[in-house]
Nucleic acid binder design. Structure first.
Lengths: 259, 259
DNA sequence: CGGTCTAACTGGTCTGACCGGTCTCCCCGC
DNA sequence: GCGGGGAGACCGGTCAGACCAGTTAGACCG
């Protein structure tokens, strides 16, 4: 409490009350002192704890929310949230709306990423990770309606990315997952694409499970090539427009995937 | 006020004063009504304009700042900011701190991305884009101190990514650029790495300029392989730790790159 | 005409109050 | 005794007005 005196009289360096508190709270979350699901102290408690006023705390919480660290529920409190892949995707989704990403752009990028990812998963993935790929595959094969098909399809590819054991690859795939999901909603509603491309999932998994990197890579390449070939005339139309014609708002896919 | 009986008039949606204002301001920026560099109205003006109080406006501005749309300067005002690649990088930087990304992870991911990018730039890049690669190369060759070397090195690789003409690839590289910059700060301070790897930039550019996709790909692969081979024992140490030992704060690289 | 000093900005922070929603616990009625 | 309902306590959302510290530009003086 002795610090109160000096704080008032002395010279606190600059303004950054706000950022200082933000940094400390962020570290508190990153360091694991506050775990996922935990409730943060109430705004009023944080005020007394950090010796700042409520507006400062509120703006800090707002910042943490924007960064995806916490959820704020009126009447209940603020809760630490798991950092999901969608948080990384959001900036890219915005950019996609600005620069007019086309399905071809997306599939090309996926090919670069996922073919090698499949090979790496085969050669270096742990048994547990590969089992997760299998589970994702089974869930996908059990799916019936369009939304489930797309979600499980996405989960399968995501599982492969994680099976590489390389967090950078997982994150890069995470950054395009929302757009990929949008792509799938369009693709999977086409019977021809579904029948041709879907069986490849099994082939990809078998390659990985056999630890046959080349087979896995080839299967993934074929899978994506089919998607490209069968996509139709919309291949070079901005994804935003393609989905808008089907009544899908790209900006909303995030929430759809989360909820 | 016993008016509650008769008219349970319309449904006041929820709390969303804040989000409503945020949405409207965001659209105002995205639509181009507010251009890059423009100053936003002062907080107090926005209050009267949107009929809300200053705390609401402040939290909204805070949100826009967190999303990278604006900069806030005490005493001067808030200004619309160009959306840079760093905005996409920030989430990944945070994840790198959480999951312990190693130099090997990063170089592996770069290899997947950049080898193909070099090939695409060679086969599909426009003359203008390739000229930008050349300019970046010359700037790099003129650089002397470590910081300049790293910045121009990064700019070169970024130019190649842009020369693919595929915004998704450019954005994916953008998402790792901060980490790559950190990696370069470490690599380029090592004389052996510098002397072995740096000449490859010229080779990469020549391949692209000759429209020789295979040569460009091979040169890029060699360039990255050298980086991997010469990196030393820190190859599997979390990047965060590697840089911390040199007094570099990963979380601060963003600002360093921007400023 | 130039330099300085002030006054009118801007954002940063604080105080204290009120609202509506959420959760819990105690008390009342069955 | 037990279950349901209601009253607070608590939470975040919003508002109003005030003061501080930088920035900027214009007025004033030399």
């Amino acid at each position: 409490m002795a610090s109160d005196f000096t704080a008032k009289a002395g010279a606190p360096p600059l303004y950054p009350n706000q950022d200082a508190v933000l940094g400390r709270l962020e570290r508190r979350i990153l360091s694991g002192t506050l775990k996922v699901g935990d409730r943060l102290p109430s705004e009023r408690s944080l005020c007394t704890e950090y010796h700042v006023s409520r507006p400062v705390i509120r703006e800090v919480l707002r910042g943490l929310q924007e960064r995806g660290y916490i959820e704020i529920h009126p009447g209940r409190g603020s809760f630490v949230r798991a950092v999901g892949a969608s948080d990384l995707a959001r900036p890219l989704v915005r950019m996609a709306q600005r620069t007019g990403v086309t399905p071809r752009d997306l599939v090309t990028a996926r090919t670069m990423l996922e073919c090698e990812a499949a090979a790496m998963a085969a050669s270096r993935g742990s048994d547990e990770q590969i089992d997760l790929v299998r589970q994702a595959l089974e869930a996908h094969q059990a799916a019936r309606d369009l939304t489930s098909l797309a979600r499980t399809d996405l989960a399968f590819h995501e599982a492969v990315a994680h099976a590489t054991g390389n967090p950078v690859i997982a994150v890069m795939f995470g950054s395009i997952r929302t757009l990929v999901y949008g792509l799938m909603l369009r693709s999977l509603s086409d019977r021809a694409v579904l029948e041709a491309g879907d069986p490849m999932h099994q082939t990809i998994y078998e390659g990985i499970a056999r630890r046959d990197a080349e087979a896995a890579r080839a299967a993934m390449a074929e899978h994506l090539r089919l998607a490209l070939d069968l996509y139709g005339e919309d291949l070079d139309t901005p994804l935003d427009d393609v989905l808008a014609r089907r009544g899908i708002q790209v900006a909303r896919l995030d929430d759809e995937l989360a909820g």
